[in-house]
Nucleic acid binder design. Structure first.
Lengths: 232, 232
DNA sequence: TGTACATCAGTGAACGCGCGTTCACTGATGTAC
DNA sequence: TGTACATCAGTGAACGCGCGTTCACTGATGTAC
């Protein structure tokens, strides 16, 4: 049980005592401000008040630190989504809440979000074509998988012949698009412009409705709504 | 009128004759392969067969080259979208075609796409809050503006009270999400998984339908579908 | 058509910088007796 | 409770590297006469 220090610049003691966590925290701050490309081990060490070399007691290197960040970020995201999934309300409400949660996570934890999407863990769980015997990186699930599970759990009745995967992909892409455009400052703001949460809710509603009732409408308009596994 | 050379490594002549274009082309190749962060003036010069210093006859620096790339990319994207907008078919078909065109552009011109979205021209045309007197960078319109124009042109009848801006934002975010997830290799592929074009078409259909007929449905489900300017 | 010369687009060497990483080291901590 | 010592988490100096950028220069081009 180590005593806490007065702050990141407290140098009274030779041993930091909490360096790994402090470095992760510094990385989160810098990545949130400057993006992953602008993140530097030297800066992180300086912020924490430590020599850059000290970092190597806790991480194999820069890449390992980012991997750790991505792993923690994904765990946090998964936890939040699971919480939204098991919250109260109708299936549609809970699914919508998952989307909002996703959007809020990207906004509140931009460093985690960037680490998850710009770091190479295996992006998708199924059908990866890895060279046999080459164990590159520990597989990490995709947020998409969580959405699919959620959809299957909440909409056991199905979507009028449309695969839950299909809807999950649509909603995921919409949420990811809103999150990244918003983070980059590309979404128009101001009076008369809806915010991203409003856009997401309306989008989820339309996409789920389109799936439930879209077969007839779709055919009438020449649509090619996916009907699940079996299409290529 | 300068004669063409045998190729980028032709060094018979002291003057390259086409260096600016060759450098832009090299930048496009490298950015497509490694992303903007991985793009290097030194590599570009080496690929073209020229000293890094030569670059400064044609660009003020790295940033200026990227700006040029973004400008060209946006012009190309705008041209393609305009072509799709004035193609044949129903309004819905043409609007859908614009979405597909957007997706194809992101796939075929990843360097342009990255330059557009990771370079600081003003992202949105309206309501920018710039410090007065500080002329930072020439304003560049947003793809969103093009979609709004297209929507207003093709759906003059409106969407049952939903602002075209609203639909344009939804579709833009969906397309951007699909494009970036796909580029990063995060979209699941394989038998049973729809491709991004299929996802986009279905999404556009559902979103437009949701807008046209969604008011009643939406209210029944507690939706907050935007009704255009006036909401805050 | 030939020569003199201004202009222009390259060269090549060098710069300062900040990065990730290594290494031998040393001070603090915790445990055995 | 006090001392000896192993372990551990830091230091500080140094490294090689590749980057963007600069500078004085030089060879090629195109024009005036």
């Amino acid at each position: 049980m180590r005593p806490w220090r007065d702050g990141p610049n407290d140098r009274r003691n030779y041993h930091h005592g909490n360096l790994k966590e402090a470095l992760i925290e510094a990385a989160r701050r810098f990545i949130a401000e400057r993006g992953i490309g602008g993140f530097t081990l030297v800066d992180a060490a300086r912020l924490v008040g430590v020599t850059p070399a000290a970092l190597y007691r806790h991480f194999r290197g820069r890449e390992a630190l980012l991997e750790e960040l991505a792993g923690r970020g994904f765990a946090e995201l998964a936890a939040r989504l699971a919480r939204a999934l098991t919250s109260r309300g109708t299936p549609l409400e809970r699914f919508t809440r998952m989307g909002e949660t996703y959007l809020a996570f990207a906004e509140e934890e931009p460093a985690y979000y960037a680490a998850i999407f710009e770091t190479r863990g295996l992006p998708v769980s199924a059908e990866h074509d890895e060279a046999p015997g080459v164990q590159t990186v520990a597989a990490r699930p995709s947020p998409f998988d969580l959405l699919v599970e959620a959809l299957q759990a909440t909409f056991a009745d199905g979507f009028g012949g449309v695969a839950p995967r299909f809807i999950a992909l649509e909603v995921w892409a919409l949420a990811h698009g809103l999150a990244t455009l918003s983070a980059a400052g590309h979404l128009p703001r101001g009076p008369g412009f809806p915010d991203k949460y409003e856009l997401l809710r309306a989008g989820v509603l339309a996409l789920v409705h389109g799936a439930a009732h879209g077969a007839a409408h779709g055919a009438a308009h020449g649509a090619t709504y996916g009907t699940g596994p079996g299409r290529s």
